[in-house]
Computed example of a mutant assay.
Amino acid sequence: MTNFSAAEARPGLRVVPAVRLEDVTRSFGRGKSAVAALRGVSVEFPAGSFTAIMGPSGSGKSTLLQCAAGLDRPTSGRVLLGDTDLAGLNESRLTRLRRDRIGFVFQSFNLIPALTARQNITLPLRLAGRRVDRAWLEELVERTGLSGRVGHRPAEMSGGQQQRVAIARALVTKPDVVFGDEPTGALDISTGQEVLRLLREVVDGLGQTLVMVTHDPVAASYADRVLFLADGLIVEGMDRPTADAVASRLTGLGR
């Protein structure tokens, strides 16, 4: 078992894990038919870092993301959000933790069609019964380039604008970490790069922790560090990645 940390990716970054996985395994099925999606993964994601997770189809990327985000429970091992061990939480407390301390950005945006952009952004707060911090909301709207669009519904917005709404929604609760599952997968190249620049700014400008699963070497090049998975294990890490270096490494993993 190898321990990987993204701490070295940015000089001066404090080694304070926002999320930590300790010897995590996740198997599906029972007995001889059981399939191991993760096999003893240990990894830390320090606060304020941007990590991309890559690997061939079936390597365990989505399972790692789901376990780290509390969407799935490991078969064994521990997942900690800060100092909180997710294994010690019942479903109700785990739901509240995900709502209050974790942000999600998905490929499909997952916006509510009947709500305006502003209403979609503030939905997590309303579901939690929390007041909207107007100053923070306006800062998010400005940073995500949505000024003048907050009264529009999803059908009245481009794909890139919808993903910006989804990013603002993920940030509105000031979460400990944001998880992205192929956040640019449904966008064209130009729009995808705009969204990636926004995600980079979210890390650099707001100090947000971001963990992103992607299949795109260009998307991964925006991260501080890339972790490569194969057969349920993290087999390599790459600091300060370039798109060419990532693509070359992925080709090797696919053999």
Rank of each mutant, 00 (worst) to 15 (best):
L94P: 00
Q66M: 12
R78E: 08
L89F: 14
P74T: 06
R101S: 02
E91L: 12
T63K: 01
R98V: 00
L81M: 02
E91C: 13
E91Q: 12
R78L: 06
G103S: 01
A87I: 11
L89N: 09
R101M: 02
Q66W: 13
G82I: 00
M54K: 03
R73Y: 14
G58M: 14
L94Y: 07
L89M: 11
A68H: 04
I53S: 08
S57N: 10
N90D: 12
R96V: 10
R73G: 11
R99K: 15
L64N: 02
I53M: 14
S92C: 15
R73W: 14
R93N: 08
P74N: 14
P74I: 12
G60D: 12
D83A: 12
I102S: 11
R78Y: 14
D100Y: 03
D100R: 03
G88H: 15
G58Q: 08
D100P: 00
G55D: 06
L65F: 04
D83T: 08
G70D: 13
G60R: 05
G58I: 10
S57A: 09
N90M: 15
L89V: 00
R78P: 01
T75S: 07
S59M: 08
I102L: 05
P74F: 04
L97G: 00
A69W: 03
C67K: 02
